[in-house]
């Protein structure tokens, strides 16, 4: 098991390397540079800046330099926020995004699986239709519509909650962003759980359990739900990685100091190190959560092998 985890981590290194390489060269190939402002800078200053950030060196040298620093955990200085290193920016922003994303994903897991299983057990009743209908709503309406509507409803019209802002993480400020992040995920998890549970309830081995007179709580709780949770686990892995690394929409609308905005801002401002830092962080999260999914899967399903 331990060896398996180690091997998987080692196997992820080439993937990360390829991603970093592609991202590095793609962003460098894009026209424009970090210091091309509306008003052109004095050529001398430009030259000094380029020298200070090694931009005057050959691209391959810069690439090697970046990899070398990356191996030591240094993501470089930010080009556009010149007083900060990229690591500094993530050190303050990442906990915020992880906190919001973590709450949303927990909510999605708990509420979504509960609703999905409930709908499956009450298939073709009013409860089922209500869950399925709400889930369709949650899946269809995009976050950038949900977020301002929630803000309008609870922040402007009803005045119950702040319409935006972070205020160093007070609970009241977290409710709407977490709800926005969680709603679509609750809907998807509920649909997945419902489908998987219905399929599990129809499976031959559940029929066996019923044929042997096992009580419903054992048939459903032990034999049906454990099988039904498997697709949810494999869905939630990559989703968790995406949610924990911040949502640009939610952070923009509610004015939250997470890391979700950095990618877009970095790409637009040609802040090479910031973009690369975001790519690295996201890729690491994806790799880690894929691994977590594989381990969970192996724990839940004995047919999966560690080789």
């Amino acid at each position: 098991m331990f060896a398996y985890v180690l091997r998987r981590f080692a196997g992820a290194v080439p993937t990360l390397f390829i991603i970093v390489t592609i991202a590095f060269f793609m962003i460098r190939l894009a026209p424009g540079g970090p210091f091309d402002l509306e008003r052109p800078l004095d050529p001398l200053i430009m030259e000094n800046l380029n020298r200070a950030y090694n931009l005057d060196k050959p691209l391959l040298y810069q690439y090697g330099h970046y990899l070398w620093n990356l191996a030591q955990g240094d993501l470089g200085p930010s080009f556009t926020r010149r007083d900060f290193s990229v690591v500094d920016l993530f050190r303050t922003g990442l906990p915020v995004s992880v906190l919001l994303g973590g709450m949303a994903i927990s909510l999605a897991l708990i509420v979504g699986t509960f609703l999905g299983a409930l709908a499956a057990l009450k298939q073709n009743t009013a409860v089922d239709y209500a869950v399925v209908g709400t889930a369709t709503f949650g899946i269809t309406i995009p976050p950038f519509v949900i977020a301002p509507i929630l803000s309008l409803l609870f922040g402007v019209w009803l005045g119950w909650l702040p319409a935006g802002g972070w205020s160093s993480g007070s609970l009241r400020h977290m409710i709407l962003p977490v709800a926005t992040l969680a709603l679509p995920q609750i809907a998807i998890v509920a649909r997945l759980t419902r489908g998987a549970t219905i399929e599990a309830l129809r499976s031959d081995h559940v029929r066996t359990a019923r044929a042997y007179g096992l009580p419903t709580r054992i048939v459903v709780g032990v034999h049906a739900l454990r099988a039904a949770i498997l697709p949810v686990v494999s869905y939630l892995g990559p989703t968790a990685a995406a949610l924990l690394t911040g949502s640009v929409v939610v952070e923009t609308i509610f004015g939250i100091p997470g890391i979700g905005r950095y990618f877009v801002q970095g790409a637009l401002g040609r802040d090479y190190t910031l973009v690369m830092g975001t790519v690295v962080v996201i890729a690491v999260f994806v790799v880690v959560f894929n691994l977590i999914v594989d381990i969970l899967y192996a724990l839940l399903d004995p047919r999966v092998r560690y080789d």
Binding site: S203, D204, H205, V206, R207, T208, A209, R210, A211, Y212, G213, L214, H223, R226, A227, L300, D301, P302, R303
Partner: peptide, 19 residues
């Protein structure tokens, strides 16, 4: 069922819980 009347099925591959 399971005590007085029991049943075995055609599909031995899927009738047992794989987990």
């Amino acid at each position: 069922r399971g005590e007085k009347i029991t049943m075995i099925f055609q599909e031995p591959m899927t009738s047992l819980d794989p987990l």
